[in-house]
Design a protein around this nucleic acid. Structure first.
Lengths: 297, 297
DNA sequence: TTTTATCCATAAGTTTTACTTATATTAAAA
DNA sequence: TTTTAATATAAGTAAAACTTATGGATAAAA
């Protein structure tokens, strides 16, 4: 590091003196005595080996070097002030970056963002799909929506929703397999998502809940690694899939998928909301978080 | 002034810590103890009300705000270092601004600058013609050439040359008035420069030196306020003018003007050279000053 | 011109801040 | 678990920043 920056504090004095072209006025601005200013500037001049002011009658006149330095210092100070502003509080309006799993992003978040934009046109939301939890404290990411609870203590974390799990299939499968009672399900392809978070449930749980004995040998299975894949599978007519409302509600509404039974695994999927309480963008984060809560009600 | 700049010195610590992502390494760089760094950063965080680092196992991790601030601070420091560089010593090459009276500029300085440029192609000289002395300490001007001595004590001042005064006229006037003896001069238009500095001489002095009695009533006078005007007057055939070698040497050489007598008022015009000894551009100033001395020999 | 007011400069003493040392705490590695 | 390598904290010390008091210089006022 530049050794000349060792006497940084002296520059504050110098800046004030340069702006006022007067030690007394500078002292008044800084709420210190005139003598202090005089000494500080003498020190600075000695350290730099450069005369910064010359006495001009009653006042002080900047030398050429003094002028150059004053310009630089003033600009550097403005820059620092801006920096402080930026980390202290940012306005509500601006960009907000949200991360969630690829499935949640594409199945729930992104399809609803237009509503947020309509309500808060000054906040531009960027959605970042990512398979793993992204640190919201040490990155540019402001909000994370994650399945389950994230093992971290240093940021705000709350449960956004518990979304029950139920079975969905296409209308065609419903008809072909005559899915009027849970027993019939054994004859379908059973599609199951694995490894998407610690979901903690499976077809086994469903059959138990349905009070139907499983006959492992007799059944056809398919494992998928994302909700998306499972949904695509059943959409194209392949079997029956266990998933939650937030992933498929719009498709159920459209009629492309149906929910053959009222059987629900609860509490089901748990989604957490995480953000940095001390973020400079806390204002817009809170707006977004509140919108999320309302939207999920 | 931004109150947050009160704790400027803490930023030096912060900058080092941010670069190293380690208080211990920062302490080593700054040659202070680790405890000092830890305290300084705690102070900074308190003053700003913002967490800048979080502990990450053994090391320290910048928060988002910390990162932002570190960037700003780093850039501000570079700027300050540059500022210091600029006022401390500038290289020999670069721009040099010279001021002189309009007459000296146009009659002597500018016609000779090409030689300087040839010898020192890396120094770009700008010539500033100005009727009054320009401060070389508190402006962008590096060198001043002035008639007489300037009443200032805070910059370097030396006498560049004493240039004797003599009479010049056009060849036509010489012939028409048959200027073979000083007596004949009384019949010419006497052109005299007034108010161009405290020159301290006039036609009266010349007649005295020539041992010719003046006949004020019988003579025609013309007063001019610049050397330039006088030279133009005699060049176009109007009378005889008192001036010095540096103003007309080239015209005498070309034959457009002649020097009818050997009578010289001495010491005549005195030119001083002034520059700021502590200028950051002292290197190129010294080169130019030496060239001036050689050129005037 | 003399006086007065208003600056800056300096010295001595005080207060505040920065720093050090020593030790505790924490988390990773062995 | 023990060791190691980092940060955190407390108490004391050193350094610096600041204040008060005073002197000197300059410009404006009398």
């Amino acid at each position: 590091m530049d050794k000349r920056l060792r006497h940084l504090a002296l520059l504050r004095c110098f800046d004030a003196a340069a702006r006022h072209q007067s030690y007394s006025d500078a002292a008044a601005e800084l709420s210190i005595s005139q003598a202090a200013v005089s000494q500080q500037i003498r020190n600075l001049e000695q350290h730099l080996g450069v005369t910064l002011f010359t006495r001009q009658g009653r006042g002080m006149l900047l030398t050429k070097q003094g002028k150059t330095l004053a310009d630089t210092v003033a600009r550097a100070f403005v820059q620092l002030s801006d920096g402080f502003d930026r980390i202290q509080i940012e306005p509500e309006s601006g960009t907000l970056t949200v991360t969630a799993s690829p499935s949640f992003c594409s199945r729930w978040l992104v399809p609803r963002l237009w509503k947020f934009s309509q309500q808060y046109p000054d906040i531009q939301v960027r959605a970042l799909a990512s398979a793993q939890y992204e640190d919201v404290r040490h990155s540019d990411i402001d909000v994370a929506i994650r399945q389950g609870e994230v093992m971290t203590s240093e940021v705000h974390q709350e449960i956004l929703l518990h979304d029950p799990i139920f079975a969905v299939c296409s209308a065609r499968v419903l008809e072909e397999h005559q899915l009027t009672s849970p027993e019939q399900v054994s004859n379908c392809w059973l599609v199951e998502a694995i490894g998407v978070g610690r979901t903690g449930f499976s077809w086994k749980d469903w059959f138990k809940l349905a009070k139907v004995p499983m006959q492992p040998g007799k059944m056809s299975w398919m494992e998928v690694t994302t909700w998306e894949m499972g949904i695509n599978a059943v959409l194209s007519g392949h079997g029956i899939f266990l998933t939650s409302a937030c992933m498929v509600q719009d498709i159920l509404d459209s009629g492309a998928l149906v929910k053959p039974f009222d059987i629900q695994i609860e509490p089901g999927l748990c989604f957490s909301l995480l953000y940095d309480d001390e973020s400079p963008r806390i204002a817009r984060i809170k707006v977004f978080a509140e919108w999320l809560r309302q939207e999920l009600k």
